[in-house]
Design a protein around this nucleic acid. Structure first.
Length: 512
DNA sequence: AAAAAAT
């Protein structure tokens, strides 16, 4: 399959080509036609599957044809860096459409707030936001979302985990019920299912074989005591040809010490956690993407969605809390068909997590012992070490009930280990229901809209391929695709966008 | 048992 089979607006197609995309990914193959047909969508898809383009292209297609003067799409996502990255993707794919976008997220200085306020007041075709900051702006009254055509929830499960359900409902209640909603989630637990019933209308469900990391990731597990992790890490870095590495740790407090220890060894390393200033976060990520340093030490703030090209290695300094996050973390490498290596440290106390991961990815992973020159190795024996990872919360023998383990720990340079108290996340339920049957009526009402002149001209460039492929697919140029378009035909059209339409206002491009 | 997200 090729992109021209979607019969996207020529300006959108140009954007696809400009971004170097040639072949639609599985999620794109399924989601794009459904979204173009005006359907709500609930899609199971991880990052790294081309998910962003899967929802951006239909939105851009809509903008290219309809040229609405109001904001067309609201995209909600869990982390600030992801919002920024999606905004950059809009710039790329939407370049020829001239679509404007704003990224709205917290953490910046007060001038950022003012900048966001100005941009929101002026309006943009697409708003990409983390929920908290958007609500803060919405409460001040200048955010105009009452006419949006698309609501997109990216990483919906992650947002639920982060307690955003109430925030999202609060936002959704300000949106028109006449809209198309696309929900993307890496997992589909009941929580998401229930939630989706509230905000989606007769969604088409798209399921891909998720939870399986790419085959071209070389996954390695090392059995290692906490106290030996740093030594093993340095040993491995010495052996491997590390071009670019992300090292994940589950605790913010580990980041600094690991960073310093590696720097002491002469490595080019920087750290990132939510505790750092937003300026620093963005600078670090930009420099890492630009290969200005070799190793990024990060918490799970980096585990989802962040796209770094040519990342050769991912190290899990400790196991993530949720098995899903393992897949997300290692999915940072081997992107876009390249290969990569994922090394995971397994200590004596977190072996249950390995079992969960293996169940999830339906594959057993080889466990390598700590090399002798580093120190003694824990054995892999999850029955023996069944520990606090156990789901039921009850610790069978109470604390310190792991015979032999503590004493078996060698005394080596201490690896950074720390615990910090965490506030409990808010439970969320009982939120207002939203859309209903009007949605259906509206879709039938939508009329077909003739192509704007610019589109016809633009079509010249790609016309041949479009027609050719349509024929191959056994449909004429006015066939299926046109029917789809008729269904989602135009409303609220007010002629072409003025020349000075705002171009991505708030976010300076990361890769210049 | 953590992290993230509005201030």
């Amino acid at each position: 399959m090729t992109f021209d089979e979607f019969q996207l607006h020529p300006d959108v197609f140009d954007g696809v080509q400009g971004m170097g995309y040639t072949k639609p990914s599985p999620i794109q193959e399924q989601a794009i036609p459904a979204a173009l047909a005006g359907k709500d969508l609930i899609a199971c898809a991880q990052t790294g599957t081309g998910k962003t383009a899967a929802y951006l292209l239909p939105v851009l297609d809509f903008i290219a044809y309809e040229r609405p003067e109001h904001t067309t799409a609201l995209i909600l996502c869990p982390t600030r860096e992801l919002a920024k990255q999606i905004d950059e993707q809009v710039e790329g794919f939407g370049y020829h459409v001239g679509a404007s976008s704003i990224a709205i997220y917290g953490g910046g200085k007060s001038d950022i707030w003012e900048q966001q306020k100005r941009a929101l007041t002026q309006g943009a075709d697409i708003i990409i936001a983390t929920p908290g900051r958007l609500i803060a702006h919405m409460q001040l009254g200048y955010v105009k979302l009452d006419q949006i055509d698309f609501l997109i929830l990216d990483e919906a499960d992650k947002m639920m985990d982060m307690g955003f359900a109430e925030d999202i409902i609060q936002i959704v209640n300000q949106l028109p019920t006449k809209r198309q909603t696309l929900l993307f989630s890496a997992t589909m637990p009941n929580k998401i299912r229930e939630f989706s019933k509230k905000i989606l209308h007769e969604p088409e469900e798209i399921r891909l074989a998720v939870s399986k990391p790419a085959e071209n990731i070389n996954q390695q597990l090392y059995m290692v005591y906490d106290t030996n992790k740093l030594a093993l890490l340095e040993h491995l870095i010495g052996q491997l040809e590390v071009q670019s590495m992300i090292l994940f740790t589950s605790r913010k407090m580990n980041v600094g010490p690991i960073e310093r220890a590696l720097r002491k060894k002469g490595l080019a390393v920087r750290g990132i956690t939510s505790d750092r200033t937003q300026e620093e976060r963005e600078q670090v990520l930009r420099e890492f993407k630009n290969k200005q340093f070799q190793i990024l030490v990060a918490t799970d703030v980096m585990s989802r969605g962040i796209d770094v090209s040519d990342l050769s290695h991912v190290v899990n300094f400790d196991l993530p809390r949720d098995a899903e996050d393992y897949v997300h973390r290692i999915g940072r490498t081997a992107r876009a068909g390249t290969s990569g290596m994922a090394i995971t440290f397994v200590s004596d106390h977190d072996q249950d997590a390995v079992v969960k991961i293996e169940k999830l990815i339906e594959r057993e992973l080889e466990k390598k012992p700590t090399p002798e020159e580093i120190g003694p190795s824990p054995e892999f024996d999850p029955k023996k070490y069944r520990g606090r990872g156990a789901a039921h919360g009850a610790k069978p023998g109470g604390r310190g009930s792991k015979p032999g383990v503590r004493n078996a720990r060698p005394e080596r340079a201490a690896a950074p280990v720390a615990a910090s108290p965490a506030p409990a996340a808010l439970g969320t339920d009982g939120a207002a229901a939203v859309a209903e049957t009007e949605e259906q009526k509206r879709r039938k009402k939508r009329r077909r809209k003739p192509r704007p002149e610019g589109a016809a001209e633009g079509a010249v460039a790609t016309g041949e391929t479009v027609t050719a492929s349509a024929e191959t697919a056994g449909e004429s140029a006015t066939g299926e695709a046109a029917k789809r378009r008729r269904k989602r035909g135009g409303r609220n059209r007010r002629g072409p966008k003025p020349e000075g339409a705002p171009q991505s206002v708030a976010a300076p491009a990361a890769s210049e």
